[in-house]
Design a protein around this nucleic acid. Sequence first.
DNA 1: CCTACTGCTAC
DNA 2: CGGCGTAGCAGTAGG
DNA 3: GGATGACGAT
DNA 4: CGTATATCGTCATCC
Length: 664
Amino acid sequence: MSEFGESPSPDDPSRNGERIKPALKEIPGLLDAREAGGKYSKDCTLILTEGNSAQTLIWTSLDRDYYGIFALNGKPLNVLKATKQTLEENEQLSYIKEIIGLEDGKDYKSTDDLRYGHILLMTDQGLGAMTYEEGKEVLANKEKLLKEFLLLEEEDKKVIEVASGKKEKDRKTWMLNNEFDDCHLDINAKHIKYKDFFNSDFRQYCLVNCRRSIPSIVDGLKPAQRKIIWCSLGIDFTEAMTVTALAHQVATETAYRHKESNLYAPIIGFAQDYVGSNNIKLFQPIGVFGTRLKGGKDHGEPRYLNTRLLPIARLIFPQDDDEILPEYDGNEEESVEPKWLLPIIPMILVNGCDGGIGTGYSCNIPKFDPLQLIAMLKKKFYNGSYGDLEPWYKGFKGKIDSEIVDDQNVWYSHGVYDQEDDGEYVITELPIGEWTENYENWLRDKDGKLSNNVYITELKSLGDERKIDIRISTISSKRLKTSADGDDESSIEDMFNLKKKLDTKHMNLFDQSGQITYYETADDIFEAYYAIRLPYYGERKKKMLHKLDDEISMLSNKIKLIELVRGNTIDMCADRTASEREEMLTSHGFARLPDFKYLESMSGLCSFTAEALKELETKLKELEDKKNTLTTMTREKLWEEDLDALEKYIQNFSLVEEMGPGAM
DNA sequence: CCTACTGCTAC
DNA sequence: CGGCGTAGCAGTAGG
DNA sequence: GGATGACGAT
DNA sequence: CGTATATCGTCATCC
């Protein structure tokens, strides 16, 4: 504490004026201004900081007679959407109310009766990362940085309602209205109108929030997920590593600007394989990665979990495409992930997306069978017809079907139940997204009463973390229909809550041009993906042909040189100046690639054996064959080869992969 | 003199 | 943002 | 009918 | 070894 020198202790009473309200020691984390609640309340400013480190920092350099500091923890409540109860229960807000002495139900005309006359929000994200010296420097200039928000006008209120109130529909159009794209706050302006702030910075924030929460149609990934995959594609995973270590590496190598612990969950998510998680898991789970008991929330601590990218990832994201991946916009200096990866199947349909919650838009997409997707792609290559996509979940034992509700196609997943001879019900599968523990708790919470006339007499849970096995004995006040009555299947299903809708009404994705786009059906997504992906096979082909051409050219020039040297047509060993030698090589028609270094650096030019030359000629022939084959190949054919490899892998090696690459 | 406790560090 | 328990170590207060 | 919780990146 | 707060959109479920 000595470095804070003469600063009097916060509760030093010596300078207190007459108090309106006593000092508030009981509020944790509050550093109260000495004059707050006293004669000079009006001149007091309460500074609200983001997090405690910022608080500690500015505490050292403020006049604490007139400045109080209170650290806000976490994100603030949106009071436009909160219910009365939520509002009242919000700790932060009640503390702030108490600190400034605001009383419920009182009509204030001025700030005279308050403990503080001003509130200052200190929102610079970097404050916590500064040294004390830097912090003092910033605070010394705080008047320059200070912005004052003007009083609310009608127009302001409207914009605020649209931007953060309960008007999601309006918010969608407001967000995508590019009239506002050029809106910027004047850095030097002292005063800010709320509407200007919302139309510029806040609208940008909304777009950013969508960008991080809504996947791309191209690779089905959100930025944090893409960073994880991209970075991992470059890691040699002969040894598995802990989730914490991987998160750290991803964060540093792809310039992830947030807490790296935020990466734990998506890494763990990639490695989960319980029913309802991944149709294709991309990472190997070594340790407790979570089960369907708790929908994966029962995973262990990231520092105890080990993982590695699975080989299937390279079949989905082939190495051959690495060079044609588009660069991330506007990041020349820093190493970051590409704009998107190019999976050979529409990964957004394989592993789906749930809980992609942005601002204005959200994204939910069910999962589909990779083998069906592969089959559809192949049919499409040859203009064959293919059926519609049907949701599919790996390992799911129940049925998935659709009904027409209000003219719209709605998909449902159904659990599985059976009735034994003695009348006992046996549940062996739950609908997609229903977790075992939740479900069993729900049953228990029924407190014996299942429906108006059915009562549970016994409830046994015999399953484990993979298997569902719930046995329920019942009695009913009415005679329940027997199977002879042609019993009403759906009512038993309803009674046990074994039917759940798959959300297909919010399939919003970023398209190739970066626009949030709504897709009505999974088949629309499939078609859109196809249209984007196919041209990239053309790109790949072009790139590969170029590389082959280069290799062929280099090799044939080398061979020619050897032949000329051996035939004594030219003498590479003779005493010549650099320009004389260059002239000689040029006159014999050698290609510059881009200069002659590749020829000059050839070792043993004069002592080449016939065998060695033969070897080079064979290699040249191979390259030329390869080129000829590639030249005749269509984009579809190239793609098909990738698909064949993946298909074979899924069919034959999935089991091996379950055991990890070590088992291969 | 022995015990119990404190403050610190590390896991 | 926080906690628990365990342990080792040195110093110290108290019976 | 209104409140609440779940989803996941932050 | 863990805990808490919150946003954001949408739906199902609860009281």
